[in-house]
Design a protein around this nucleic acid. Sequence first.
DNA 1: ATTAATATGTTGCATAAAGCTACAAACATA
DNA 2: TATGTTTGTAGCTTTATGCAACATATTAAT
Lengths: 410, 410
Amino acid sequence: MNDPALTASSNRRIRQNNEVAALRALHQFGRLTRAELARKLRLNRSSSGHIIASLTADGLVREAIEDLPEQAGYARAGRPGIMLELVPDAIFFLGVEIGVEHISTVEIDLGTNIVSTNVEPFDGPSINVEAAVDRAVRLALQSIPVSKLERCEGVGVSTPAQMDKNGFVHFAPLLGWRNVHLAKLVRDALPIRVPVLAENDANAFAIGATYGRSEVHSGVTLFLVMESGVGGGIIVDGSLFRGANGLAGEIGHLIVSDAPSPRRNLEQLIGLENIMAEYRKTSALSDPTFGNFLSDVQNRLPSAVSIAEDWARALAIGLVQTCRIIDADKIVLGGSVAALYPLMAARVTAHIHAIQESSFPFPSITMNDEGTVGSAFGAACMLHQRYLSLQSQRFADGTAELEGAEGDEG
Amino acid sequence: MNDPALTASSNRRIRQNNEVAALRALHQFGRLTRAELARKLRLNRSSSGHIIASLTADGLVREAIEDLPEQAGYARAGRPGIMLELVPDAIFFLGVEIGVEHISTVEIDLGTNIVSTNVEPFDGPSINVEAAVDRAVRLALQSIPVSKLERCEGVGVSTPAQMDKNGFVHFAPLLGWRNVHLAKLVRDALPIRVPVLAENDANAFAIGATYGRSEVHSGVTLFLVMESGVGGGIIVDGSLFRGANGLAGEIGHLIVSDAPSPRRNLEQLIGLENIMAEYRKTSALSDPTFGNFLSDVQNRLPSAVSIAEDWARALAIGLVQTCRIIDADKIVLGGSVAALYPLMAARVTAHIHAIQESSFPFPSITMNDEGTVGSAFGAACMLHQRYLSLQSQRFADGTAELEGAEGDEG
DNA sequence: ATTAATATGTTGCATAAAGCTACAAACATA
DNA sequence: TATGTTTGTAGCTTTATGCAACATATTAAT
């Protein structure tokens, strides 16, 4: 309703803002003294002390027991400060990925450490939303003792679907969902009343892979997740760029071939399905795997190399096109197909150089090595991020934010 | 150096924040009473009064003389409030566009009204940077009396170049510049010491066309400027998305044709040059203009319609590709070639529907009717925007912000 | 070993800005 | 004319930061 850019800062909001800033600094830098924190936040040492006292009273921060004395010879003159750290198990967050073939859940603590994970096979297309949500919630909570539940500060859900920022799913082709309020369903299925956010799986993956990494905080990073489908997410200065409908970065649907009749999009060219379809045509094996394909490429088997070469060229085209529009300076490849990249990196680079005009900058391309729970982890990170912001429930004064994590406007 | 997200709000910053918020609200809504302002900013009425008193003392705000009594029958019970408004000529900003064929300058006031404009022919490629800057600054200042100069609060520069956010130009192919600090040159050429920002012309155009319009504040808007070249700018939630190198939205360099040998980018297909080259081949006139072409299309001359049809298809491809990546919900067409769009709107729509998968949302496409000074206006708006932010010189406490508008980090 | 220098954490006080309450003013309606 | 409603303002309270001073803990130098 109101323009968020216009909201004024009341006297109380200062403290909230500063507490949040302190928590974020501790998360980003790990351990800080009060004086260091004061410098980072451009605050007076005494103010820093007050804020820390407040957070300590809330049980979120503690003075670190220096089990490692002589912190690597950092001996400067003056009284040494007392190291402060987040209390990891003060609170926790849950992340849930409802995939097509499996459900994964993750529990992370205040330090964004993974506490536990669960994975369960699942047949997405054959199960309706309510049942899927029910199973997902059950799996997420199965290892959490009831007494611990009250320390849960949020649940994130990720799923291959197009949804708005309130977690309302417009369309999920792979799961057959349409117009369901996923976030609301999860909220209602939970035994606790906590903020719930839902996000597209590729977007969640991108968040998880960049969250907390201070290196990537500035710039534009494109995340590519290549499995059967090809999804993407864009991170700008450390936070997700969703686009108007949460579809930003879905580069799998870029048109690559110009021919109108068998119009092929990028997903159909660089996705796992196409690679395996082509590979099956040439492989001697009866039921070849992607691993077989990788070996054949590594062994320079011409038929496999040819498929890989087509893949490299299509990938290069997709990346160049994308960079013309969002001007990314970093590209991160994920998903099982990404394993092909190290073998073809030189070819991809060559294609990019051949395709793009020389005056354009060349983005760095790296690989992501997160495990299979990356997307669920990212979903959990979204709630960690929310907790470490002014939207946190800690600051809910009752006048607003009635509906958990629905967001103020819209 | 420091993460801006971590900066704490000091006690003094509250007032600064609220003064800025009040100025922005007055800019956005035009006229407000103290009580209305308090509600919009979620402030207490008395606080609102204090803030207004402060701004009035600074000469930025005044009580409006109600020359129009009975404000359109809005008669509610209760004591009527006193309308407040920005004092338009309290300060002003200059915008300068150094184009390829002309230099334009604009003066805008605190209400972002255009006070005056100057346009001068110019032969960009034959003139070096220093001389170009000199001429641009001279043109901008020629109608400003010296006594008024001290009320200038910023100068914006726009030019067809790839530059970083500090105004350092890496490359300007159309002007032949390379590695020049444009913003610094302008700062040094000015007789006054004010913030100077420089931005790519298409980006500046996009800012100018959206700035202050409250409708577009939310969502993703793609701005397309089609002249000889084709530039673009992306506005996300009311502010410019530059990308990592200021190249975001440069969709003129999208690859459209798949054929490797005569690889053609979008600019070569939908730009003025291609249209006129094709048109000259078929037109009966000896030296046909773009206006002639438009007439022929309107009169359904087959040869012209065919060219327009190709244009429509290429445009549709470019827009669909772009929307797959940034998920824009609004597209605004500008530049002289945009005049072709109203004649071809139905065809463009048809092509888009044919190309993109049906599950994707369809962005709205509109035209921009700004004059020729759009880019210079946008450059001036950038400084207006900066003034109405915490980076304003009003709040420079001497400790930082030494270098005008260089930006803190980097 | 003693002294000087330096940086940290804490304490008391000053300052600044917003919130709250109350009240006079100005208008509409009955 | 009386009543209800909204506005703008004044006085007081609350809160969080800034500042200055001080005790403390450590290094470096004499």
